[in-house]
Structures are given as structure tokens and as C-alpha cells.
Design a protein around this nucleic acid. Structure first.
Lengths: 155, 155
DNA sequence: CTCATTGCAAAGGATTTGCACTAAT
DNA sequence: ATTAGTGCAAATCCTTTGCAATGAG
């Protein structure tokens, strides 16, 4: 198994983006399509710069402003989620229709692992209520050592 | 009850900062002391700009660079914690020796409420383990409506 | 054709840094 | 006296914006 989502899911997202553009009378420019392909075609959390680099790696080209503007369109379409891990810049991730998920980040190698947990969902709702808030969403990031880094660099 | 920590705790923090400076052969300049007083004297989460403003309000003066440099010293001393709520800038909060606490943020008025929960602590450790990570720390922010904003602006 | 998008460069906001000057010990 | 800190402005980093040229429908 690779770390990419299956081809069908990716293809569905691409088509969804085209539909979104059509439905909103937004021109389907070459730049938009490549950028969408890059972000929707991986499960990684890419920075705007990562996206620009990958676009060029694919032989295409898109100015920085266009990258940011298109990421914005993707976020508004709901197909992509903006993340801020406190690194000083934002990252973008294909949402794959997953309503909410948490992140585990290795403090040594930076590896990111995602997971979902229903109990956590419920717990945050209760915690909010206990303090007279009505929960809308939450964000949990757990920092720690991933198995590989814990077991040491020696293979 | 006010929303400030009690005077004794604040005074203890101030003294701790002076000790820290002494122990590290760092000059106790007027700027450092005012900035420390501002940050350690409230329970709010201040931005660098908030700090600079408050310093001036107290009749003192400190350049922007000095504010950032001093906040850095405070963070290294362990008396202050740096927070990133994804607003595009950082906030600083007196740590008061509290090892870890969570934040509830009102999406309407921006109010911040803190709380601690042991179960959550344990749960994050278990969640990390379940994915072959060893937990070091975590950060949870719950976004929602605070009671006042939910009940409406009237009255 | 017409209007939205693109690219580039300038503008922005937050934070950092270089450096001559000033102050703490 | 020494050594570190301070202020100011220039510099960075990430992101946004203005505007003339360009391309999609």
C-alpha cells in the first residue's frame, strides 16, 4: 500500500473541482487544473511553496500569486483544507470528505500521521459545554516521536 | 474575583525572572523589567503588539525589536509560553507553572478560556501509542460560541 | 468579444537582524 | 572599563494586491 489515496478517490476529487469551477462560472485555466492535480493528488500536507515547486516539476508553470489564489479556490470548494502547524506558514491538504481528523507529528523527522477518533469528538463537545461554549470544531495536534525515530537511526 | 492571577503568584514570577537574569548574567534593563511585568502581570494572551502598547501605556518605552527579544528571553526562562492560534501572529502567556492546558476560543468575540483535563491527557497518550508514537505534548484548541455570544448581543 | 485570470512586481504584516550608540555590572 | 542591550531602520519570510497583458467561454 502506498501513502496516496486510491486513484478513484483522487479522480473523483479532480472531477469535483471541475464541476465546482463550472457551477461557479470560474474559468478552468491550465494553472488551476495543475495546481488542483498537485494538491488533490497527494495525501501530504503541502506548503504553497511545495505546490509551486511540484507544479514546475511537472513542466507546468504558475506564478506565486496564482498558486495562492488557486489554493484559496480549492479551500472554498471544500476539497482542500488549510492547516497551520505553527511553522510560520500554512499547509494545504486534500480533505477527501473527511469531516475532521487529528494530527500526530514526529518532533524529530516531521512525519505527519492522521487519525480519527469518535470519543475525542464527543469529549471536546462535552468539554466545551462544561465551560459554557457550544463547540463548532476543534484542532488537536499531538507531538511525539514516531516509531522509527524512537527506535533510533540505526536501521 | 478578577481574571488576574493572585498578586502573590505574579510577584513570585517577577522575582523568578530577576533570578533568571541574574543566574544567566543577563543585565536587568528597565525594558526587560517592564516587559516582564506586563506579560507576567496578566492572564491574557498578548501579542507582541499588545505588549508594546501596554508598555507605552505605563509610561515606559521599548522598541519593537526589544519587545521580541525580551519575549524570547521570557520564553526561554520558562515563565512564558508562546502560542499560535493561527491568527498570523503569536501570542504570549504567563505559564504560571501549569504544565499543559487547553484553549476554548469563541469564534465571534475571540474570548479565550483555559481549562485542564486529566482524561484528555491520558487519552492523547493512548492515541499516540495506538499509532506507534510516544507522546511528548499536545495542543488542543476548541472553537465555538461562548455563552454570551450564543445568547445574543442584546443586553 | 467580454470579463475573469495571470504574472510580475510592489505592498503588507509579523518578526528578525545589522550596527552605531547606550547602559548595566 | 567591558560586555551586553537598545533603538532604528533595513531586511526577511509568507502572503496579498494593483494593474496591464492574456486567455477562457
Amino acid at each position: 500500500m502506498s501513502h496516496e489515496s486510491d486513484a478513484a478517490a483522487i479522480e473523483a476529487d479532480r472531477e469535483a473541482f471541475r464541476s465546482y469551477l463550472r457551477d461557479h462560472n470560474l474559468p478552468a485555466t491550465a494553472q488551476r487544473l495543475v495546481i488542483a492535480d498537485v494538491v488533490l493528488g497527494t495525501d501530504r500536507h503541502l506548503s504553497a511553496e511545495d505546490v509551486a515547486t511540484e507544479v514546475k516539476a511537472r513542466g507546468a508553470s504558475a506564478g506565486t500569486a496564482t498558486v495562492y489564489r488557486t489554493l484559496d479556490v480549492l479551500v472554498r470548494s471544500g476539497l482542500v483544507v488549510e492547516r497551520d502547524f505553527g511553522e510560520g506558514f500554512k499547509r494545504y491538504e486534500a480533505s477527501r470528505g473527511v469531516p475532521n481528523h487529528e494530527h500526530l507529528i514526529c518532533t524529530v523527522c516531521g512525519r505527519v500521521t492522521e487519525f480519527r477518533d469518535e470519543r475525542l469528538e464527543r469529549m471536546t463537545t462535552l468539554l466545551a459545554e462544561a465551560h459554557d461554549y457550544s463547540r463548532q470544531r476543534h484542532r488537536l495536534v499531538i507531538y511525539g516521536l514516531c516509531g522509527d525515530c524512537r527506535r533510533g537511526p540505526a536501521r
